[in-house]
């Protein structure tokens, strides 16, 4: 019984190790990239198109609309980052229907890595959007006294992001494992369905929160533009 797929180590050489988290992540990456390559390899620019292309277009347009609804005026700029976050978390959750699979998002290392990526990406987008001065100035809003609180908020929300996703994904897997041990028939299926739903919701929450943080980093600039 292990809490995280990090503990399943296939190969280790000192500090460097190959655990289940990394291997499953590679698997997801291969799945996503090969799938994308297969579908986009024969893209149609006409009105007639394949079902898979249609599916991908629907997903991407839905992501774009969601990003736009958060308040980001140029959603395509953030699509690569936010879309990949969503697709990765969703795929990781979806694959839980496979036996002996453990989602890499059930590892705190993965969620921390993703949260750190968000934490790095937010100031990067903020600086790209309104410059160094404008972005750093946002830490002094509304007054100078708020600077430490703003920094704490930045760190705490990153931590919250990481722990929220980890907790939900890990709990799902854990509950499933425990239920399998206790009642091996109907309940694990129900819980798997519930876990899928939870995974979808968490993917949505994680991506939307990242989008909201980016939007917040850009909000001063956008407010100025509106005024």
């Amino acid at each position: 019984m292990h809490l995280s797929p990090d503990q399943v180590i296939f190969w280790q050489s000192g500090f460097v190790k190959l655990n289940a988290t990394i291997v499953y992540t590679w698997a997801i990456m291969v799945l996503l990239v090969v799938g994308a390559k297969l579908i986009t390899g024969k893209l149609s620019h006409d009105l007639q198109r394949s079902r898979w292309q249609n599916l991908l277009e629907i997903i991407l347009l839905a992501i774009v609309k969601q990003i736009e609804s958060v308040g980001l005026s140029e959603p395509r700029t953030y699509l690569s980052f936010l879309g990949t976050l969503f697709l990765f978390v969703v795929t990781a959750a979806l694959l839980t229907i496979l036996p002996s699979y453990e989602p890499p998002t059930g590892s705190l290392s993965t969620t921390v890595a993703l949260a750190l990526c968000v934490m790095v990406a937010v100031p990067l987008f903020g600086v790209a959007g309104q410059g160094w001065r404008g972005y750093l100035k946002s830490y002094l809003e509304p007054t100078l006294i708020m600077l430490p609180f703003n920094i704490i908020s930045e760190i705490s929300r990153t931590l919250a992001l990481a722990v929220r996703l980890f907790g939900n994904m890990m709990s799902g897997t854990m509950i499933l494992a425990i239920l399998l041990a206790i009642t091996p028939f109907i309940f694990p299926v129900v819980m798997t369905v519930l876990g899928l739903l939870t995974g979808m919701v968490q993917a949505y929450i994680f991506s939307i929160l990242a989008a909201v943080y980016i939007a917040a980093a850009l909000s001063i600039d956008q407010e100025k533009k509106h005024h």
Partner: peptide, 20 residues
């Protein structure tokens, strides 16, 4: 619960995935 090598590897993986 946090393995920092895995964190770094996952961060790198994620960035590669974004690029791909």
């Amino acid at each position: 619960l946090i393995d920092w090598f895995t964190v770094a590897a996952q961060a790198l993986n994620f960035i590669i995935l974004v690029a791909l």
